[in-house]
Structures are given as structure tokens and as C-alpha cells.
Measured scan of single mutants.
Amino acid sequence: MISLIAALAVDRVIGMENAMPWNLPADLAWFKRNTLNKPVIMGRHTWESIGRPLPGRKNIILSSQPGTDDRVTWVKSVDEAIAACGDVPEIMVIGGGRVYEQFLPKAQKLYLTHIDAEVEGDTHFPDYEPDDWESVFSEFHDADAQNSHSYCFEILERR
């Protein structure tokens, strides 16, 4: 099963200049909980913004210009990325925008964090048809001392 995991502000903004323009430790914990011990696929820009392999996960970098870091697996196509994951129950696609666009048609599940923030962004989550998805989990949280904005975790499964 292919799943996408993303944090989205208003207007589906997911990033600005290779960074997330908010401070939500709870979302980072949600991300870790849902990706640990699963292969993660990301684009080169996302890889560069993280700066290191995510521990406890097979890191697969999709790029037309593969790098030389041998701590991760470099691939040039969506099919190659899927094959590099091996026989696993769930593959997690973690961004960025172009990689989400490439995998959305193949995805069966979306793990979304909806952030109540209007922020400037240069990267967006692809538009998706809500009628194609069923919400199977939703959990709202107010902003607090650690988390700069209110947010809602949601899991959607393709109908």
C-alpha cells in the first residue's frame, strides 16, 4: 500500500524555501509514529532540507540527478522507488510537492495534518478530489505552549 503523509496549511501550503513555516512538535511526533519502520520516499529537495537519513526507516530518494550519499537509496523513477521498498505492507511518501503529485494517483491512504495557519509558501500539496477519499480518523488539537497553531490529524482512505 502506498501512503502519503503531509502537513498542510491553508491553501495546501506545505513548504517555503525548503522548510515548513510553522513550529508543531506534535506533528513531528505524528510523522515519526506513522513512518517508523517503514520505507520513506522523498525528493532530493526534501532530502536536502532534512540533511540526514531518517533513523529507523529505509530512505529512498527520487531524483533525476541521483546523489552520492550511500546512506540512502537513490532512484530515478516512481517504479524504481516502489521496487526499492521491497515487499512491505506500507510505503510512506513524505514529499515534496512534485513527489506527492507523482504518487497521489497510486496512493491508497493519506495521513494529513491540517494546520490552521495562513502562511506564504512556494510548495503545495497537490489538489485531490475529496469525494474519492473517506475520512477514517480525525483528531483536532488547539494551539498550545509547544505548538504554534491549532491542527487536525486526519487519515483518508481511497474509496
Rank of each mutant, 00 (worst) to 15 (best):
I5L: 04
I5V: 00
A6G: 06
L8S: 02
A9R: 00
A9T: 15
V10F: 03
R12V: 08
M16R: 07
N18E: 07
N18W: 05
M20W: 01
P21N: 03
N23H: 07
L24C: 04
L24I: 13
P25G: 05
L28A: 01
R33N: 09
R33V: 07
N34A: 04
T35R: 00
L36I: 07
N37D: 07
N37L: 08
K38A: 07
P39K: 10
V40H: 09
I41R: 01
M42E: 02
R44I: 04
W47D: 03
W47Y: 15
W47K: 14
W47P: 01
S49M: 00
G51M: 07
R52E: 06
L54A: 01
L54T: 01
G56E: 07
K58Y: 05
I60M: 10
I61C: 11
S63L: 04
S64Y: 06
Q65I: 11
T68K: 08
D70Y: 08
V72Y: 15
V72N: 12
T73H: 08
K76Q: 08
S77H: 10
V78E: 15
D79G: 05
D79W: 05
I82S: 13
I82A: 12
C85R: 07
C85Q: 13
G86W: 07
G86P: 15
D87R: 08
P89L: 08
M92W: 12
M92S: 13
M92A: 14
G97M: 03
G97C: 02
V99N: 09
Q102N: 14
P105I: 06
K109M: 06
L112I: 10
L112R: 02
L112G: 01
T113G: 00
H114W: 12
H114Y: 12
D116W: 15
D116I: 15
A117W: 01
A117L: 02
E118I: 12
V119N: 15
E120Q: 13
D122S: 02
E129F: 12
P130F: 12
P130K: 12
P130W: 13
S135P: 12
S135T: 14
V136T: 08
F140M: 13
D144G: 11
D144A: 05
S148H: 00
C152W: 13
E154P: 01
L156F: 15
R158V: 08
R159M: 13
R159Y: 12
